[in-house]
Design a protein around this nucleic acid. Structure first.
Length: 819
RNA sequence: GCCCGGGUGGCGAAAUUGGUAGACGCAACGGACUUAAAAUCCGUUGACCUUAUGGUCGUGCGGGUUCAAGUCCCGCCCCGGGCACCA
């Protein structure tokens, strides 16, 4: 074995112990440099790292190390999103307590992260299942409870009648419980909510200020779903009840031909009492999952309730139906149906032979309106609408709203699609909700001095019922002062609660006297947040909401938690998502053992830009390993020819060939700095360094100036690659004769005098087709270029004596003759 | 069903502001080195036509705008993500 060959395992251990010994990644608030908080979405400790983790954390590490070299005071922390459903499943399967399973996983995955050489400040590590963490979440919740932001109401859940437990949507497979196989029912139970809808306007408006991908901002905007409409009350015939609906299209009000309510609606319940067919239909509808994706794709079915609503304008009777696609938790749980101008209402009306009343016509004939085949959903001019005929959308909206408001039959309303956040879960492995119930049913927050409410950890799970309900020590307590018998809330928090504020706790994870202290004001907001695009809506919206709650309670000073967001794509293998069930996973650990962490990091950053999905390739990994070997050999060969130092590379000392080499070096610095610093396109940054290394390898060294140029090229290649492959660069930097570690070096800057090209290639087109390329001195004037181009043999041939109608000229780029 | 992305050689991709399509890498093929293989190094590599110079076509499909379209507009097809209890 060659003493001088590339041995990744050896040099990676050496580099890592150097960083540890020098506490290179410890982040302090006392620095006078500008702060940079770089955060990757923390992992759920599922057992082992997968490639998605490696990709996510490598991106964060590259940016952190780059920003550090740019002189920033960088904090990059890591922790564990440790509560969640899989731990309960694993506990049942392996007979292990969820806490034990989780903590073993954390220990193993921590060692895997360390082996990858990520620049984390491990002193800030936290796990959400630690009582020091959830203590403050409970403390904050009791404030929200007292402020009325947390409240209780009925909500629909998936209920497994055999296991007597609530199921997650994921646990419902083809309408059956995943363990019991029993047909799942929808059931209404009391649940805790947070009033996120109170913050809907701000959550919407502040999106504009964020440096986030437009697609994510659009998704959040649509999710919040602001609409302006009318809430209209229909009276019910022969009944004191009122049927309230919300519509954004009051201009179509005269086209209403039926009403539809959800299976949970009071009118449906009442009508079913003396109608067994209806009762059966409603029971069947309730067997559908609560998942919107499922409800929206099932066969649309309905049944008449046998009662009528009274149209608020015409006074006509309109039949009321129950329909399986009307969502109980959305709007008023009831709709007015206008089949002529809504596609879903149209299909339902056709299926059940309900009337289709056209009340809108297009503005002009260019629009197609064929009510035999589909609804006409565009806005237009009103017809068949009595005194409103001839009005357009906005005047019809105003007129109808005004008239109905006068009669007290409607109010204008801004509505949001966003619903309040359901935060309680009927599960064991989560943060206990710090609420107690007195014997007379009063609900009270647990007092500060009694926090945290600790989750009992040594429990046995069997998959049925609620475990906390069976632990009497937990469930039944007595008041420390009065001795009154009290009962604890046994629900736990949605795990999105923990992930909604961990980014803030990383600023001061050791604070025992407060949830957050002024260190949070120093570090927040997060400068760059990186994670999977699958979190584009829920996690990122909840975290934004929680941040505003923290702000309104004086705990943080910023309005938004994440200044810039980078959403990484998925890691695929053979075109599909890597998953255990498909058996196409690649274990990062095996690859690290075989090639070292740097090779894995390099491949994963080179294979595609971060936002795109990444196709895994074992051959590609080998290619990355080959490149690192070439780079290593190149440096070894260079230094074995002896040290070069202090030779003046200023322009007057260089020949043309040397000037061009130096130009390549500085063009590479310029490109890589832009790719990493601005564009986040690490793949093209790596390609640029590869080109420089290839150029250097081909470059024949004839004198000491050449050797100094090779030194400059290799040093810069090492500096530019050091955020991506930090271990090999740590070693190569010393080998190149430097005494400081590369991590302590500044990011290189390119010299614009060197990068300015003396000549440019101008593309010559005839009618937009490439016909010639001619080299001109940079900045050559238009006349010269055009006359030279026109007399070029090939160009002449294509102009072929025809008249030039027009000449397009783009400086330093192209000439296009239009003939 | 609704919302948001994506589709470029045999493969991963590049083309940053409408201006040279395919940088860089993988695979493949040919050559050098070697007893041989591996490794390494050098070369070729979008398709078709052509002896060659060269030419024609080509960025999911069909239209359009423009001197010029992978890039902009309209209509489709396919794939992926999310849809509120997976994280």
């Amino acid at each position: 074995m060659d003493e001088l060959s590339y041995k990744p395992n050896l040099i990676e251990a050496e580099a890592q112990s150097w960083w540890t010994k020098n506490q290179s990644f410890k982040a302090l608030e006392t620095s006078d440099r500008e702060k940079f908080y770089c955060l990757c979405m923390f992992p759920y400790p599922s057992g082992r790292l997968h490639m998605g983790h490696v990709r996510n954390y490598t991106i964060g590490d590259v940016v952190s190390r780059y920003q550090r070299m740019k002189g920033k005071n960088v904090m990059q922390p890591m922790g564990w999103d440790a509560f969640g459903l899989p731990a309960e499943g694993a506990a049942i399967k392996h007979g292990l307590a969820p806490s034990e399973w989780t903590r073993e996983n954390i220990a193993y995955m921590r060692s895997q992260l360390q082996r990858l050489g990520f620049a984390y400040d491990w002193d800030r590590e936290l796990a959400t299942c630690d009582k020091d963490y959830y203590h403050w979440e409970q403390w904050f919740f009791t404030r929200l409870f007292k402020q009325g932001i947390a409240y209780k109401k009925l909500a629909v859940v998936n209920w497994d009648p055999v296991d007597q437990t609530v199921l997650a949507n994921e646990q419902v497979i083809d309408g059956k419980g995943w363990r019991s196989g029993a047909e799942v029912e929808r059931r209404e139970i009391p649940q805790w909510f947070l009033r996120i809808t109170d913050y809907a306007p701000e959550l919407l408006e502040k999106l504009d200020d964020l440096d986030w991908p437009e697609s994510v901002k659009t998704m959040q905007k649509n999710w919040i779903g602001k609409s302006e409409g009318l809430e209209i009350n229909f009276s019910v015939k022969d009944s004191p009840q009122v049927l309230t609906v919300y519509t954004t299209r009051p201009d179509t009000l005269l086209g209403v031909s039926y009403m539809a309510v959800s299976a949970e609606h009071p009118l449906a319940k009442a009508a079913a009492e003396n109608n067994s067919k209806l009762e059966f239909f409603i029971e069947e509808s309730k067997k559908n999952s609560v998942s919107e994706a499922i409800i929206e794709t099932i066969e649309k079915e309905g049944m008449s309730l046998g009662i009528n609503a009274i149209h608020p304008i015409t006074g006509n009777e309109v039949p009321i139906w129950v329909a399986n696609f009307v969502l109980a938790g959305y709007g008023t749980g009831a709709i007015m149906a206008v089949p002529a101008h809504d596609q879903r209402d149209f299909e339902f009306a056709n299926k059940y032979g309900l009337p289709i009343n056209q009340v809108i016509v297009p503005f002009d004939e260019s629009q197609i309106c064929d009510l035999d085949s589909e609804a006409f959903i565009s806005k237009g001019i009103l017809i068949n609408s009595g005194k409103y005929n001839g009005l357009d959308f906005s005047s019809a909206f105003d007129q109808i709203a005004e008239d109905l408001e006068l009669e007290g039959k409607a109010i204008r309303k801004i509505n949001y699609r966003l619903r309040d956040w359901l935060i309680s879960r009927q599960r064991y492995w989560g943060t206990p909700i710090p609420i107690i119930e007195t014997h007379d049913g009063e609900i009270k927050a647990v007092k500060d001095e009694d926090l945290p409410v600790q989750l009992p950890e040594n429990v046995e799970l069997d998959g049925s019922g609620s475990p906390l309900n069976h632990i009497s020590d937990f469930l039944e307590i007595s008041d420390s002062e009065t001795g009154e018998r009290l009962k604890r809330e046994t629900d736990t928090f949605d795990t999105f609660m923990e992930s909604s504020w961990y980014y803030a706790r990383f600023c001061c994870p050791d604070s025992h006297t407060a949830m957050l202290d002024n260190r949070a004001s120093y570090w927040l907001p997060v400068d760059l947040y990186i994670g999977g695009v699958e979190h584009a809506i829920l996690h990122l919206l909840y975290a934004r909401f929680f941040h505003k709650l923290l702000r309104d309670n004086g705990l943080v000073v910023s309005d938004e938690p994440f200044k810039k967001l980078l959403t990484q794509g998925m890691v695929l293998k053979d075109g599909g998502k890597m998953s255990k069930s498909l058996g196409n996973t690649v274990d990062p650990e095996e690859l690290i053992q075989q090639y070292g962490a740097d090779t894995v990091r390099l491949f994963i950053m080179f294979a595609s830009p971060p936002e795109q999905s990444l196709e895994w390739s074992d051959e590609g990994v080998k290619g990355s390993f080959r490149f690192l070997n070439r780079l290593w050999d190149r440096v070894i060969t260079h230094i074995s020819e002896g040290q070069v130092r202090g030779i003046n590379l200023s322009e007057e000392n260089l020949g043309n060939r040397q000037k061009e080499f130096r130009r390549q070096i500085h063009k590479t610095i310029e490109k890589v700095s832009d790719d990493i610093g601005r564009r986040y396109t690490f793949n093209t940054a790596i390609a640029a360094v590869m080109e420089l290394v290839n150029y250097t390898s081909r470059y024949k060294t004839k004198d000491s100036i050449d050797r100094e140029l090779v030194q400059e090229a290799l040093e810069n290649a090492v500096l530019l690659l050091s955020p991506i492959v930090p271990h090999i660069c740590h070693q190569l930097w010393f080998l190149l004769g430097n005494t400081n570690a590369v991590i302590e070096e500044n990011w290189p800057t390119s010299d614009s005098n060197v990068t300015t090209a003396e000549s440019v290639t101008i593309v010559i087109q005839v009618n937009g087709k490439l016909r010639a390329k001619i080299i001109f001195p940079a900045g050559a004037n238009r006349e010269l270029i055009e006359s030279t181009a026109a007399s070029d043999g090939k160009v002449k041939k294509f102009i072929n004596g025809k008249k030039i109608k027009k000449t397009i000229f783009v400086e330093d780029k192209l000439v296009n003759f239009v003939i």
